[in-house]
Design a binder for these strands. Structure first.
Lengths: 200, 200
DNA sequence: AATAGAGGGTGACAGATGTCACCTTGCAAG
DNA sequence: CTTGCAAGGTGACATCTGTCACCCTCTATT
């Protein structure tokens, strides 16, 4: 019997997955979490075989949860289910010791199989996603990422500078470097590129 | 027996919903579509009682499908299931004759009930969403919307002008009006506001 | 002690963007 | 017919962004 916990912030999908997987004879859904923090707590409490988790959730992302479980040497295996085939996500997931990475685009029939493989210690990466891992790595440093994130919201150099206790000129310089590194022609395009690659 | 078709581009959710709803004694999932065009074709072919559809899908949005069904006086009722509680969406859904509008945040247990009500001709709007309908209406005209959409991608005035066969100055003027109408302080913020409200 | 980097900063300049007032043309309603 | 409005445009000006060269300070390295 494979004991699992499902972490996913959209109740509808979470509930539907739970009932879908409960139909399998060898799978038991022991708990459900709607955010990262809750997922971590429930895993520690129930010590399931597998944690099936989304990436983008409140409080802590699925990758954060995986990293913490790895640090605490938890035996629970982690399988990510996400909408986004972003290289940066996959890369970070691998680093966090995640065993499975499947997309919400995948057929629902294959989910249980993937889950069994992960429970068995096998690595399961969505087809066509493996190459994504070879994609160029995140060229941004922390400052650039942080500033780009604020610029993305439409904040001016001055406002960003105030928030980070920097001068407007420095903000300008960081943004210039970021746009150049990303091959963009302005901050908006830079933000889009970074986000599409999972670097933001 | 309530015969339904499910349209949703994420296979995983689509499959999970199908199996969740198939568990109900009085509901039968007669077909599934992964995009708007397919949904329309399947509805015409099977004439189900209810079409359960996402909004954001390839080819045609769930709202587009609803509008076309209304135009062709199809007896099939439409129920939207979406991630976004955007006033613009809800407004357009109502105009397209949609009977149900629920969020993917809703508990999965309530889905079947909502579906039965819609099949019965009742209006079902997610709680807390009804007020959203009273929110300010889309202040943008077609030109502004179109230009804002391009500006959102990071395109310069000049490039936008070329694409639309306008002068750069005119583009500037439209963007200025849009940002003012939306109470934003620049095009990026304007785009964000418009998108959050479902106006883009 | 010398050097190189990283992080932060400045100043100058070109080009893009935002703000405003005003012009032209075409069409539609009185 | 003329009034009025909508769509598109121009020009002027201020501010913001993007690009670049260069400076300062601290820290780690040799």
């Amino acid at each position: 019997m494979i004991r699992i916990i499902i972490a996913e912030d959209q109740s509808l999908l979470r509930g539907a997955l739970a009932s879908l997987l409960s139909l399998e004879d060898d799978i038991e859904v022991v708990a459900q979490a709607s955010d990262g923090a809750q997922a971590l707590a429930l895993v520690e409490q129930h010590a399931p075989d597998v944690l099936l988790t989304d990436i983008e959730m409140p409080h802590a992302s699925g990758i954060d949860v995986a990293r913490k479980l790895k640090e605490s040497k938890s035996p629970t295996k982690v399988m990510i289910v996400t909408t986004f085939a972003r290289p940066g996500y996959l890369e970070r997931a691998r680093a966090a010791g995640v065993l499975g990475y499947v997309l919400k685009d995948a057929p629902s029939e294959s989910l249980a199989d993937s889950l069994r493989k992960v429970a068995n210690g096998q690595l399961v990466i969505e087809q066509g996603l493996a190459e994504a891992a070879w994609a160029s790595p995140d060229p941004l440093n922390d400052r650039e990422r942080e500033i780009l994130r604020l610029a993305e919201q439409g904040q001016s150099n001055k406002k960003i500078a105030q928030q980070l206790y920097l001068s407007a000129g420095t903000v300008r310089n960081y943004l210039a470097e970021a746009t150049q590194k990303l091959g963009a022609s302005n901050r908006i395009e830079a933000a889009r590129i970074a986000r599409d690659n999972g670097w933001l």
